[in-house]
Design a binder for these strands. Sequence first.
DNA 1: CGACTATATTCATGTTGACGGATATACTGG
DNA 2: CCAGTATATCCGTCAACATGAATATAGTCG
Lengths: 122, 122
Amino acid sequence: MELIQIYQCFCDATRLRIIHLLTQGPLCVCHFQDILEVPQTKVSQHLAYLRKREMVETTRRGTWMIYSLPSKLSPELESNLKCLQDCAQTDKRFRDDLKKLGKVKQGTEWIGETLSQKSTCC
Amino acid sequence: MELIQIYQCFCDATRLRIIHLLTQGPLCVCHFQDILEVPQTKVSQHLAYLRKREMVETTRRGTWMIYSLPSKLSPELESNLKCLQDCAQTDKRFRDDLKKLGKVKQGTEWIGETLSQKSTCC
DNA sequence: CGACTATATTCATGTTGACGGATATACTGG
DNA sequence: CCAGTATATCCGTCAACATGAATATAGTCG
């Protein structure tokens, strides 16, 4: 992944929040919706943008689509993700996203290879 | 400077090269032109973009306009500039830019507050 | 002041991107 | 197979951006 493409992926607020969430681990679309509070279409479109540029990978689990960062990160991407995590700490918006992520995650839990469902959503 | 704006400034190839050059120190427009080998208009427009977003500062020195990074960098910008410098090392294009910067700089030299001109350009 | 150099701005145009609304697809459980 | 949920894609529209050409501005030197 070219450096410039990394920045292109990073340069929209919604995408940046998505990527930031993904640094914490894989996440399914409905969780993105819950956390970001943006329309489903918007989430899907940005995820499509990221997929097209191979910034994210997907796995289907039933009707849910789980998004994650690529399993092997280029050094450039890795550096920039670290930098992002670092910068995000001082930003209220990103911190709030992480808080919500925690709450949303409380509703679900991974047990081995299966997802134990506690919330109404995935 | 907001994180997202940093990425917006970084997300065009020409701008990224400009910013990368600026991490090495102030530079005037004609040097950008020489190094980047892009039309003057293009350089000026990208510099205007960066100026508007306060990613760069300017000083006039005679007919030349010297561009530099802001004297006080936000922590976010500083982190990202470091990251950029890091990533740029492994990229041929950026390395070539630095090589050219060296050559161009050989033609000029700062002596105290005055610019001793050795090349035809500033 | 006038010619010249360095740089900026304006303009027109093509492209990409962001977004909401509508619709399609994919999987699941009955 | 059907209904329902999760997600993706398509479409139209609007704004932002990238770019080259032409022109304007600012400073210097004679």
